[in-house]
Amino acid sequence: MTTLPLPAAGVPEREMSAAAPRRSRREVREITLIVATALTIVTVGLFNHGFMSTQNLRFMLLNSVVLSLVALGQTLVIATRGIDLSVAPVMGLTAVVTGLLAQSSGLPLVGAVGIAIVLGLLLGTLNGLLVARLAIPPIITTLGTYSLYSGLVFVYSNGTQVDSVPRAYATLGNGFVAPFIPVPIAVVVLAVALLLVWFMLNHTRFGRAILAVGNNDAAAYNAGIGVTGVKVRVYALSGLLAAIAGLMFVCYTGSATVTTGTGDHVELQSIAVALIGGTAIAGGRGNVVGTVLGSLFLSVILTALVFIHVPPIWYSAGEGLMILVTVTAGMRQNRGGAN
């Protein structure tokens, strides 16, 4: 592990989560989420065995992939004490652009990946520059670019929607790694993304800089961290992950419309999931494993509501309650650990 050369004066008021003392607490959050998810699966599974079937488990996992990817980026942004509302239109724009090109002119998958990367980095970097260079508060920056980027979806597509994607795309979204290994490729994509982001946040200089900036950016600056650069890169990464999520969305569902992303309020969902996972909105703490577990837990809860025959109008209330309970309980946990 690289250590950050922090002069004594620059030590942030709050300790950094990636440092050893926090580790146990973070693991508590992860274990809690795993136990809660497992308990839900077993309890509902006792009433309806279909809930525990391999197939259902696989789809609950698959259904969480897109949101997990977006939320990974959101976690990084929140860890710098920022927020990124524009992930929804970035995801939608990528889904529509790559999907339409694939549908109409047979864009090869490699090309789509390239477009996603470029689009995501570009739009994300713009956010980062506005936040870091012009010092526009993140929520305002990304609220503004939310409008701009959603407009771009209309400008590009003129309302044409994606109805089907070529086979290679569908395989990326739905296929197994190999016929004899029943692991969906999409899950592998998420796992790789998670591993990379986790490593970056916890075991690199850049990751420690992210947390330092989130803790106290003035102190981080005094400690010799290039605050501006860190922020720009974090928003760029958030854009990138949202764009990859958009590509995975169009591959998984085979469809995309002008309201993809924004219509499902992916921006709010991703914030919720990051906070469920134990990332602090006040910055300085980012738990990417928790984020993915949180997204999975949400998917399991929403599916469970169907299995236990809760009327559909209450699904949204169920989601709200779950966010409230997990986040509040999590904060109790954190405070308990601190005392």
Binding site: S53, N63, V306
Partner: peptide, 25 residues
């Protein structure tokens, strides 16, 4: 046996469809 809603969103409709079929085999 059940009426579900997809909010006119392709992704929510897909999830709802999967849930219908899994919960009501």
């Amino acid at each position: 046996v059940t009426t579900q809603y997809g909010q006119s969103s392709p992704s929510q409709s897909l999830t709802a469809g999967l849930n219908i079929l899994q919960a009501n085999p």
